[in-house]
Design a protein around this nucleic acid. Structure first.
Ligand SMILES: NC(=O)c1ccc[n+]([C@@H]2O[C@H](COP(=O)([O-])OP(=O)(O)OC[C@H]3O[C@@H](n4cnc5c(N)ncnc54)[C@H](O)[C@@H]3O)[C@@H](O)[C@H]2O)c1
Ligand SMILES: NC(=O)c1ccc[n+]([C@@H]2O[C@H](COP(=O)([O-])OP(=O)(O)OC[C@H]3O[C@@H](n4cnc5c(N)ncnc54)[C@H](O)[C@@H]3O)[C@@H](O)[C@H]2O)c1
Lengths: 254, 254
DNA sequence: CCATCTTTGTGCACGCGTTCACAAAGACAT
DNA sequence: ATGTCTTTGTGAACGCGTGCACAAAGATGG
């Protein structure tokens, strides 16, 4: 999982559990694909398979939205697309700003998946004067001096932060002060925000480290299983051959 | 949370809960910052604040690793950095390949945060013949024909997929067949993999949709609180003014 | 050596999320 | 109308994660 909600511990919204909310976009994506193939109805079993979840979980998730299925038949695809879209707030347009138009910010700006849902890139903002006026993805980059006015003029409530980590909190503070109440943070920093502001983070490095943990565990188990059979599985990254508990502390605690 | 683990339901590894594993990188980042400031020891309270978590949770997390603290004092920063690094498998180098060197793939390749932990970009792979040989982040892009050989020669076990969604499953299959056992997927698709292969996904669109959900809920509550006081909060994105339950189904189920 | 003070490590309770399993509901055929 | 068959919707049980609250451990000072 690359993301992790910050803050807002268990604010079950209108009875819809947070875990369910996080899966609704998954269902919506699968349903949209079915809709494009003009499939009229779908069973919980089929849809669950397409979304990569358990069918019981899917049914329970949908039960929080209402009784939208027909027993013996399944769910009407178009109807469900509409209901989930409405529940997620995608029937309206959400203007978003991206702050920090470097490698990642530019990639996001160029990403078509934004507009395909109800999101519209309202502005690109960067602190580098050399960037101001440059066209990225057909949008002119604006200098961060005008951040507050841009937020206000466009009624932006969602901000994306792709600046270096050192300035992320400062950028976040300005966004919040200007009226932004939802932030998607790509900088590897813990952001502190007032109550009522939602922060979600995407941290590539954390994802890789979690994968590395499991990878190491798999290698350790494999080694334990093979015990001292063959020397090494040809070129695998276990050269140091430090057992899973090769406890050689670098520094002892005081 | 931008990521979400696929598969591997609750394979509590060596007694370390999955939720704890996901937080270890957070602690490690905070500890590294302290280490750079030459702070010798840190209390659970301070470290928890820096990592943005509850101190009780942090202590419980560390208790799974062992008793590395000193009561009345706290934790030795350097020692803890080493222990967590070892637990996460960061004492060894992990070669990774990135497949699909477009906007996002190139941004990731240029990202310095890779190497700062134990990850090394072993190769960049793309199916576009025009990309082959091009330098991205100082690395020459290789054609996907040689994917299997690249994986094998470099002992790669972690792959990053940044191709268009339509080919992601095919790319995934090839990576797995070539020996990759951990995949970080940026394409908005559900990947199916055999047992023993870990998949984590990062989906920007899902993150935004979750934010939109809460944003809508906030707007709805605000509207309910204001009832019919002032017309509108000047430029906010609630023009359609469809109440939180403006139930107007597009299509009725059969 | 003893008292005091700080901070860890954890037992325990609670709530959320997941999954099972099945009754109820509806479609469809006869 | 009745029976059969499919699939939903959900009650209930269970397990994981979280947070409280405190006893134990060790540092520190006298
Ligand atoms: N590139 C990646 O793949 C990647 C992956 C994970 C995380 N990240 C994180 O995302 C962030 C951006 O990464 P990047 O590779 O695009 O970096 P980058 O250096 O290419 O881009 C950062 C941009 O932010 C701008 N900036 C700096 N200070 C600013 C301010 N105060 N206000 C507005 N803009 C400001 C800079 O001018 C620059 O254009 C970093 O925090 C990085 O750690 C990047
Ligand atoms: N750009 C973003 O910010 C962003 C955000 C979220 C998700 N994504 C997803 O990430 C993926 C990449 O996005 P992008 O904007 O970089 O797209 P892109 O079109 O710029 O890049 C895709 C690259 O993949 C290559 N490719 C195509 N088929 C391939 C194959 N079979 N093997 C190897 N390489 C292949 C293409 O040649 C191209 O270079 C997409 O699935 C997109 O939905 C992107």
């Amino acid at each position: 999982m690359a993301t992790g909600r910050t803050h807002r511990p268990a604010t079950r919204s209108r009875g819809i559990p947070e875990a369910t909310v996080a899966r609704l976009p998954l269902y919506l994506r699968a349903l949209t694909a079915l809709s494009e193939r003009s499939v009229p109805t779908v069973s919980s079993e089929e849809l669950a398979a397409a979304a990569g979840v358990n069918s019981a979980k899917l049914r329970k998730d949908f039960s929080y939205l209402g009784s939208y299925g027909t027993r013996g038949v399944g769910y009407d695809v178009e109807y469900l697309v509409y209901q989930i879209s409405r529940e997620l707030g995608l029937t309206q347009d959400w203007p978003v700003v991206i702050v920090g138009i470097g490698n990642l910010g530019a990639a996001l700006a160029n990403y078509g998946g934004f507009a395909s849902r109800g999101f519209r890139v309202a502005a690109l903002i960067d602190a580098d004067p050399a960037m101001a006026g440059k066209q990225v993805a057909g949008i002119s980059v604006q200098h961060s001096d005008g951040l507050e006015k841009i937020i206000s003029d466009n009624g932006v409530s969602i901000g994306v932060i792709t600046t270096p980590p050192g300035v992320a909190q400062a950028v976040c503070d300005r966004l919040v002060a200007a009226g932004v109440t939802s932030i998607l943070n790509f900088a590897p920093t813990v952001l502190t925000v007032p109550d009522g502001v939602d922060v979600r983070k995407v941290d590539l490095s954390i994802e890789l480290q979690i994968l590395a943990f499991h990878e190491q565990r798999k290698a350790g188990e494999e080694a334990a299983a093979n015990e001292n059979a063959v020397p090494a599985p040809a070129g695998r990254a276990d050269s140091t051959d430090q057992g899973p508990d090769g406890d050689v502390p670098a520094v002892m605690p005081a």
